[in-house]
């Protein structure tokens, strides 16, 4: 049963990711992005990282995509004109893509990651208590730094989106 859900959700994730890349309309791309994030959250559930699945839905499928849609509608972006890629660009992109896929196949077919997957250890991400305990003891400094980063980002966004005034107008 778990296998079936893994194949289902990974297929949905990959298909909607391809749709994000291929759809010309940006709003459609954002909608496919929601589908992709939701199916990734389902994969997190299959990996027994329930807290991260909830965070994924709240932060990505909720906040980030809504922000994207907000900006898309604010900017009134016209649909991508069918601009021809120069053959050099398209060729370089395809070569880069092919090298990446070859790397994937090399990694997946090697023994280095297969060795550990024989015995499934006890689920670690399931316990929210253990998660919080780790977060506020071992990872306390990164936690504080991340909070400070959010503050800095907020101030940066306010400064960036403020209309620039002439120096005389500022008292």
């Amino acid at each position: 049963m778990t296998d079936f859900f893994f194949y289902l959700f990974s297929t949905i994730a990959l298909a909607s990711a391809a749709a994000v890349v291929l759809s010309r309309n940006t709003v459609n791309a954002a909608m496919f992005l929601i589908v992709c994030f939701l199916s990734m959250a389902s994969l997190f559930v299959l990996l027994e990282a329930y807290f991260l699945a909830v965070i994924q839905v709240l932060v990505y499928a909720g906040a980030v995509v809504v922000l994207f849609l907000f900006i898309i509608m604010l900017l009134d972006v016209r649909e991508d004109a069918k601009r021809k890629l120069s053959p050099f660009t398209a060729g370089a992109g395809l070569v880069g893509f092919a090298i990446l896929v070859m790397g994937i196949i090399a990694v997946v077919s090697s023994d280095s990651i297969k060795a550990t997957s024989e015995v499934l250890p006890e689920p670690s991400g399931a316990s929210l208590k253990a998660f919080g305990n780790e977060l506020f003891t071992t990872y306390l400094l990164p936690m504080q730094v991340t909070g400070f980063l959010l503050l800095v980002a907020m101030i940066g966004v306010i400064v960036l989106s403020k209309k620039l005034q002439e120096p005389e107008e500022q008292s």
Partner: peptide, 21 residues
């Protein structure tokens, strides 16, 4: 993180999601 039974990966993903936002 799941297949190695370690918590670190999960916490790292938590930080990545925060920074990505």
């Amino acid at each position: 993180s799941r297949y190695h039974g370690a918590m670190g990966g999960n916490l790292f993903v938590f930080f990545i999601i925060t920074v990505a936002a």
